[in-house]
């Protein structure tokens, strides 16, 4: 792969990542959100694959394959299953902040990410590190989704969004943090999602829904 091709492919993948994050913020239907999330997973896998191709590293190819399986396959599948279980009533997210404001916030967060990432770029300027702000922005948008979305499932998506962003940063800066740690991280993420999914089921049994605003029993006021 040529250098320009590599750079273009890299930036394309990063663009898709950021775009999908914004779309997740934009759309209300959970089914669409999950599909977009799968697309983001694929973009992330592509990013890994591009890096692998550029470096010619077998280990990175394996990592890319793992990412594709986990983030474009297993996790969206788990989410979809949870969505099916939850029935018709819970198909839409109900943001605490309306969509227009959310998008504005996303724009501001992206700016912030860009500003914050300057030293990261400055440490080792390269095409890959130039794209680091995208990863940071995805992390911040993910956190924003966690804070403002009221469905259990959309919080799950928000968490995964953060995780995708972090993985992006990892790839863009240092091509990963070593296989053992990488696998450990994946395992943890997977387990967290599983746990949250089981808890969603229990929540539905206990509360009759997955609206997080119902979770107000434990408080001091």
């Amino acid at each position: 792969m040529t250098d320009t091709g590599y750079v273009q492919a890299l930036y394309l993948a990063c663009g898709v990542l950021l775009l999908t994050a914004v779309v997740i913020l934009w759309r209300r239907e959970l089914a669409v959100i999950i599909r977009v999330f799968a697309l983001q997973g694929a973009a992330l896998a592509a990013l890994a694959a591009i890096t692998a191709a550029h470096q010619g590293s077998a280990e990175l190819w394996a990592v890319a394959a793992g990412i594709a399986a986990l983030r474009a396959g297993v996790l969206p599948w788990l989410l979809r299953r949870a969505l099916v279980e939850s029935g018709q009533a819970a198909r839409e997210t109900q943001p605490l902040v309306n969509v227009a404001a959310s998008l504005l916030a996303a724009a501001a967060l992206t700016m912030l990410a860009y500003a914050v990432s300057q030293p990261l770029v400055a440490l080792a300027p390269s095409p890959a590190t130039q794209a680091v702000p995208v990863g940071v922005a995805v992390v911040l948008i993910g956190l924003f989704v966690l804070v403002t979305r009221r469905r259990a499932l959309s919080q799950l998506v928000g968490f995964l969004l953060m995780d995708n962003g972090i993985t992006t940063v990892a790839f863009l800066t240092t091509e990963g943090v070593g296989l053992i740690v990488e696998v450990g991280v994946w395992l943890d993420v997977l387990l967290v999602v599983l746990v949250l999914q089981i808890l969603t089921t229990r929540m539905r049994a206990a509360f009759g829904g997955t609206d997080l605003d119902d979770l107000r029993g434990l408080r001091d006021t």
Binding site: Q155, F159, V192, V195, L196, L199, R202, A206, L212, L215
Partner: peptide
């Protein structure tokens, strides 16, 4: 598995994971 327990577990996992 009471309501309170599920609620606490959810908050625990979500906040800590984030």
């Amino acid at each position: 598995r009471t309501r309170a327990a599920v609620e606490a577990a959810w908050k625990y996992v979500v906040i800590c994971s984030a």
